[in-house]
Nucleic acid binder design. Structure first.
Length: 971
RNA sequence: GGGCGGUUAGCUCAGCGGUAGAGCACUACGUUGACAUCGUAGUGGCCACUGGUUCGAUCCCAGUACCGCCCA
């Protein structure tokens, strides 16, 4: 049956994938040679809620290229797939589903029932992304698919596994070694999800904000002289004040102020350091007094130079408060509303006053105090802010300015004829860009909050992770990634690993009534530790990244000493996005070293975010999202994969354009049609091994094939996937299709039987090599052609990768001869086109001044040249006929006698242009060779190359000048 | 403000000491025995700028300008 004109990807892909899977082609160890080294890649586990986006498509293409390449080369290959339970994202998804389907919400269901819903959801939708990865052609060993919550208590059937045990075991061990501790710390609190989140999950976004200026009156009506001086020490402003001026972007936090701080060197406030001032908010009779202290933190040039210190709600203030032993009052509840617990304000304020006057306190005692005045209790934090501002302003304690003060922001534009409003006194509220923290998932403003959390003491485990990269055990690509890695790890903060969620690994710590903690793998063991007390488990779960930090060992069966651990660990390469270098890569390195004392992989290949063709981030709001599945539907997975490979320059920006994808779909079609041509001409696989060749074209293409094989291997080995792709593109299209197929036509159609048979064999082999070498990048179309073109013992996915070399297969004289023939054909075509010689006209050719090489090259390839350059009889003469077009080659000049057709002036212009170009090159080469310093210091081969180059140019120059002289005779 | 990176053909990008490449786009021609998802030919570049190192710099070094990304 004749082949179709194009590859029907939509029809074939699912069928081919099914064939691979049912043959077990992707199982660990498939096609492994006896005693082969292992090659392992752990997939960066996509979120169980995930759907395939272009980033996954890119990332998995790279992994699949590496995996298929190694598998074909006979390594014992494992691509370990799996998914991450993604605490917040999944909990959110399921809550949304509950709301949308009118079911009871999370809180109404309770923890156990809710988790049952999550598992149900996972069972129903959790394999979406797996099926999508299959559509991309990913050759993972799906029989080993892992999940970071496998084996958790109450996990339904089908979710057995070791991961939960591994996570719990690591927690307990680290706890016992003192690497994990609990404490009240300031963390990023997400008021929407009501959980702590990590620094890395906070996006700082510049937003339009305001800075309010308020007066904090000095206690007891004290006054001082406030003086401002210029650089030379001259007094430029002086006034008597009974207050200190404070600027803040968050007035609602004033309620929790513990002090006012000024810089040690700030002379303006020196007279009042150590005195008390009053927070200008709350009931008049219980105004709190706080001390004015000094610290290094306040910036004298910023605002008034004095800052309020709210240790429980700001990271900088927190540090100042710790240094100065300033109480840190928590003002908000878990939802970001003003606290409504505790005693009436008057009582709470009285307690705070005692501490302010020096009474000893503990963090817990301070935290128990609710300093929110009764009228603000229960309000949302932003509502409370407005009320605080209004109250202070009404009391006359806002710093005032004139209404035309530029700090207030742009004035409203006046309409024509409208008069400027009268200048009045208004409160100083600066319009200011402020960096505001947002939760990357919830999109709400993150609240720094003092809460009890669990931490990993990262400073104790970071050392080996730094060393592993510094000493080269782990290589991060591109190299700039290593710099970033050092920078982060050298300044690492404790890692907050507790989350106030339900979906996740619950922390294996139980408390007795006195609050003593017992850490153990099971409740029974914890009870035993406590001596039989009744215990209550810590409700928090572990940060998802804590469990995914154990991905390399967890997926291989650890803590059991499995055969897979023995064989595939440490793994080889991690391919992942730059954005999770800290989230995941660094933590995996730290954790693996801390737990099993081995590096998890030797190479980290980092890539950028995939953007749209203009370099913009893809986002639903911008509407520039490219859905890889839509692309696969339209152009086939191979086209998308080839595009991904060709974008994959190390460290490169990834801009995905549909035009490019289309271009590589066209490339697939080109390959398809070259194969179709081969099939039509009986040039299909029929033997093993490299065919023997006698014809020059055949010898030549075999050598070219060896060259590209070496290029592709070198490129993939160096993770230069773009180079591998472009080498293959250039070879298949530029060498095989453009030249070899064309050259082969006269041999296959009109050649003698032996030449025809030889060419069929060689072409069959060459096409097979194209399929093999392209397979890691374009698995579907190559597998389909492999099946169509021959009766094979194995699928292409399990075919051995070739090892022939250019040194063995390149025939120097065939190479030279074909290059000569190609340049002659190109020369004739170019001259013909420029001189408007009709395309269909077969022109006779006269050869002059031919040397032996040129003569034999012509004689050996005359048929091909005649056909491709569309020339008739080739004769030899001492002189070119008058009025002909001149073509130069190395070792011969050719004339196309076309006196009646050609325009002499046009031919002159063409030749003069060529001479001009040559003159420039000759000038440059001569200049260099005449420079004694060049001859002295340049390497021998460069000098030789320049000389040879010069000789060639001068030969051509002479040929062209002779042609010009002949034209002058008639012109 | 700190860190990292970029600036090469109209566009998207390779190249990174020996005088510039690809794909796309563009122009002209084309029903040549696989392919119009194609063929043939062609146009197009002071390789951001200024200095330095070198026989020689798009490539190495220093600075300038502009543009990204990450962290404050």
């Amino acid at each position: 049956m004749a082949m179709e004109k194009t590859f029907n990807a939509a029809e074939a892909e699912a069928r081919i994938y099914e064939k691979w899977e049912s043959a077990g082609a992707f199982k660990a160890g498939a096609n492994a040679k006896e005693g082969a080294d292992s090659f392992t890649i752990m997939i960066p586990p996509p979120n169980v809620t995930g759907a395939l986006h272009v980033g996954h498509a890119f990332n998995n293409t790279i992994q699949d290229i590496l995996i298929r390449w190694h598998r074909m080369r006979g390594f014992d290959t494992l691509w370990q797939p799996g998914q991450d339970h993604a605490g917040i994202a999944t909990q959110l998804q399921v809550e949304k589903m509950l709301a949308a389907t009118g079911q009871l919400g999370r809180r109404d269901l309770g923890r156990d029932a809710f988790l049952e819903k999550v598992w149900e959801w996972k069972g129903e939708y959790g394999s979406t992304i797996i099926n999508q990865l299959k559509r991309l052609g990913s050759s993972c060993d799906w029989s080993r698919n892992a999940f970071t919550m496998s084996g958790a208590p109450n996990a339904p059937a089908g979710n057995e596994g070791n991961f939960h045990d591994a996570v719990i075991k690591v927690f307990v061990e680290m706890y016992n070694k003192g690497l994990i501790y609990r404490g009240k710390r300031l963390v990023n609190w997400d008021p929407h999800f009501e959980t702590a989140i990590s620094d890395l999950e906070v996006e700082n976004i510049e937003t339009d904000g305001h800075m309010w200026h308020f007066k904090y009156p000095l206690a007891g009506g004290e006054t001082y002289t406030y003086v401002e001086k210029d650089e030379d020490g001259n007094v430029i402003f002086s006034e008597e004040r009974d207050y200190i001026s404070i600027a803040t972007t968050r007035p609602e936090t004033m309620l929790g102020d513990g002090a006012v701080a000024v810089h040690h060197d700030d002379e303006r406030y020196a007279p009042i350091v150590g005195k008390l001032c009053e927070i200008p908010v709350g009931p008049k009779e219980q105004r709190r007094l706080i001390p004015i202290i000094t610290d290094e933190y306040p910036d004298m040039a910023f605002g008034s130079g004095a800052v309020k210190i709210t240790g429980a709600h700001d990271f900088n203030d927190h540090e100042v408060a710790k240094r100065g032993n300033i109480p840190q009052y928590r003002l908000m509840d878990t939802r970001g509303a003003m606290r409504a617990d505790g005693a009436p304000y008057a009582e709470e304020a009285a307690k705070a006053a005692e501490y302010a006057q020096g009474k000893e306190f503990t963090v817990q005692e301070i935290d128990a105090i609710n300093l929110v005045p009764d009228e603000y209790r229960g309000l949302d934090r932003f509502e409370a802010r407005q009320k605080v501002i209004d109250a202070i302003t009404a009391e006359g304690l806002a710093v005032m300015t004139k209404s035309d003060d530029p700090r207030l922001g742009p004035q409203p534009k006046l309409k024509k004829g409208e008069e400027a409003p009268e200048v009045t006194d208004v409160p100083l509220v600066e319009a200011k860009k402020i960096m505001q923290p947002f939760g990357d998932r919830s999109k709400v403003v993150i609240e720094p909050m003092l809460t009890d959390q669990w931490f990993v003491e990262t400073s104790k485990i970071v050392g080996p992770a730094l060393d592993a990269v510094r000493n080269g055990d782990i290589k991060i690509m591109p190299e700039s990634g290593e710099k970033t890695y050092y920078h982060w790890l050298e300044n690492i903060e404790p890692w907050c690993i507790s989350r106030q969620l339900w979906w996740g690994h619950q922390i294996p710590v139980w408390y007795d009534d006195e609050g003593n903690a017992y850490c153990a793998p099971t409740e029974a063991e914890a009870i035993e530790q406590s001596g039989g007390k009744t215990l209550k488990r810590d409700p928090d779960v572990l940060d998802t990244w804590f469990s995914s930090g154990l991905w390399p060992i967890g997926t291989l069966g650890w803590p059991e000493d499995t055969a897979e651990m023995q064989k595939y660990f440490p793994t080889d390469v991690l391919v992942t996005g730059f954005d999770i270098l800290f989230f995941w890569v660094a933590r995996m390195i730290m954790m693996q070293l801390a737990v099993v004392d081995e590096i998890p992989f030797h190479t980290v290949y980092l890539h950028q975010l995939v953007r749209d063709e203009k370099g913009k981030k893809m986002s639903k709001t911008t509407g520039n999202v490219i859905d890889p599945l839509v692309i696969i539907d339209e152009y086939g997975a191979d086209a998308l994969r080839f595009t991904n490979a060709s974008m994959a320059a190390i460290g490169g920006v990834l801009k995905l354009s549909e035009d490019r994808i289309k271009g590589y779909r066209n490339f697939s079609t080109k390959l398809w049609n070259a194969s179709r041509f081969a099939e039509m001409n009986g040039a299909v696989h029929g033997h093993d091994g490299i065919p023997a060749a006698t014809a020059t074209v055949n010898k030549w293409i075999i050598g070219e094939t060896a060259r590209v094989r070496e290029e592709v291997d070198a490129a993939i080995a160096a993770y230069r996937f773009n180079d591998a792709a472009s080498a293959l593109y250039g070879f298949v299209w530029g060498k095989v299709c453009d030249w070899y197929v064309e050259f082969s036509k006269p041999l296959l159609m009109d050649g003698a039987d032996d030449v025809k048979a030889e060419t069929q064999k060689v072409m069959g082999w060459v096409i097979d090599q194209c399929l093999i070498l392209l397979h890691p990048i374009m698995p579907f179309i190559t597998e389909e052609l492999w099946d169509t073109l021959g009766d094979r013992s194995d699928m292409l996915a399990l075919t051995d990768w070739p090892t022939y070399t250019a040194a063995e297969l390149v025939d120097a004289s065939a190479d030279q001869e074909m290059n000569w023939a190609i340049s002659m054909i190109e020369g004739i075509r170019s001259a013909r086109a420029q001189m408007n010689v009709p395309v269909g006209l077969y022109v006779p050719v006269v050869m002059q001044d031919a040397d032996a090489n040129a003569k034999s090259a012509l004689a050996n390839n005359e048929t091909l040249i005649k056909r491709l350059a569309r020339v008739g009889d080739i004769t030899e003469a001492a002189e070119a006929p008058k009025g002909s077009i001149t073509i130069t080659t190395t070792g011969a000049t050719f004339a196309l006698p076309l006196a009646d057709i050609i325009d002499v002036d046009k031919e002159k212009a063409r030749i003069e242009k060529a001479i001009g170009k040559l003159a420039k090159e000759i000038g440059g080469l001569k200049g260099r060779l005449n420079n004694p310093k060049f001859v002295e210091s340049a390497p021998e081969e460069v000098i030789e190359e320049s000389k040879a180059n010069l000789a060639l140019r001068e030969e051509e120059d002479a040929q062209l000048k002779a042609a010009l002289a002949r034209l002058a005779e008639i012109g």
